[in-house]
């Protein structure tokens, strides 16, 4: 799709406050003396109602994403799905959130020195995503491969909004994203994810526990509070974007069976023989 054909974000259709467009022209200053511009970005909005995230992508490949809080078991399930797809001869490409080399240095520096704010945290992840979209997601999709993404833009919509950025802003930042063919949302209660994380490693990671948000000085309590917010937002996103909920408390093989059935569904009209990568890339990683 050419750049100029890209639909613009539909500010009015998203949750959150009203767009600047709808405010009176001379918006009075709020109590902090900071108003919103009367000719801000929304005033330039066109009338195109749909974003790319709401429109099926036109490529021959398939995009399958997993979402959920840390410790929900999504990566395990994606690995099992990948094994199965490869064993059946499908050309598969795997990509993971926050894995681009482009921002690794800034991310490490920001995390180590605690320089990240909710906005820069969000934008660095957006750089990572845009970079992977260009190099890891679009080429295999155009080549007709099956792209497996461990976390997708919904992670940003949930986490960054839980950190306090505006839900419309983060959707606009990620408006370049394609709509996945299938998004699996691994729903798990906080206590179970905590139990899984704490039994696997000794300490919760600083940002994973939302320590930067300052909800509690105790990492476990902070995790509980922060990830509860994230969970709540994920639940709303499930409806907004049609994610398929998976009961992540069920037994692993059972979850995998459910997932494989859903994947078979989206592969029904998939033409494996037309995939350029077939035979070459189907070796196990």
């Amino acid at each position: 799709m050419r750049e100029k054909d890209r639909p613009v974000i539909d500010a009015a259709g998203s949750p959150g406050g009203p767009a600047a467009l709808e405010l009176p022209a001379a918006e009075p200053a709020s109590d902090d003396g900071v108003a919103r511009s009367s000719h801000g970005p929304e005033s330039a909005a066109g009338s195109a109602p749909k974003t790319l995230l709401e429109t099926p992508h036109p490529y021959r490949g398939r995009l399958i994403c997993v979402e959920g809080i840390d410790g929900s078991g999504k990566s395990t399930q994606l690995l099992l799905l990948e094994r199965w797809l490869r064993s059946r001869g499908y050309p598969v490409h795997f990509t993971e959130w926050n894995s681009s080399r482009l921002v690794r240095h800034s991310m490490q520096r920001g995390k180590k020195k605690n320089l990240l704010t909710p906005t820069t945290f969000s934008l660095l992840h957006a750089v990572d995503f845009a970079d992977r979209l260009t190099y890891q997601i679009l080429p295999p999709l155009k080549a007709g491969m099956i792209v497996l993404a461990d976390r997708y833009v919904y992670t940003a919509f949930a986490r960054d909004v839980a950190r306090g950025v505006h839900p419309e802003w983060v959707r606009a930042v990620y408006s370049l994203a394609l709509r996945p063919d299938l998004t699996l949302y691994f729903r798990v209660p906080i206590d179970i994810s905590l139990e899984r994380l704490l039994s696997g490693r000794a300490k919760l990671k600083y940002h994973e526990a939302g320590m930067d948000v300052g909800l509690s000085a105790d990492p476990v309590e902070s995790f509980r509070l922060f990830q509860s917010r994230v969970l709540e937002i994920y639940d709303q996103l499930t409806l907004e974007f049609g994610m398929r909920p998976i009961d992540a408390t069920a037994e692993i093989p059972h979850q995998q069976r459910v997932i494989r059935t859903m994947v078979q569904e989206i592969l029904r009209d998939y033409d494996r023989n037309r995939a350029n990568g077939n035979g070459v890339t189907s070796r196990p990683r």
Partner: peptide
């Protein structure tokens, strides 16, 4: 100082 204005949503947090 004059009242300041955010260009869009600003920094809600």
């Amino acid at each position: 100082g004059r009242a300041k204005t955010w260009y869009g949503h600003g920094l809600p947090y």
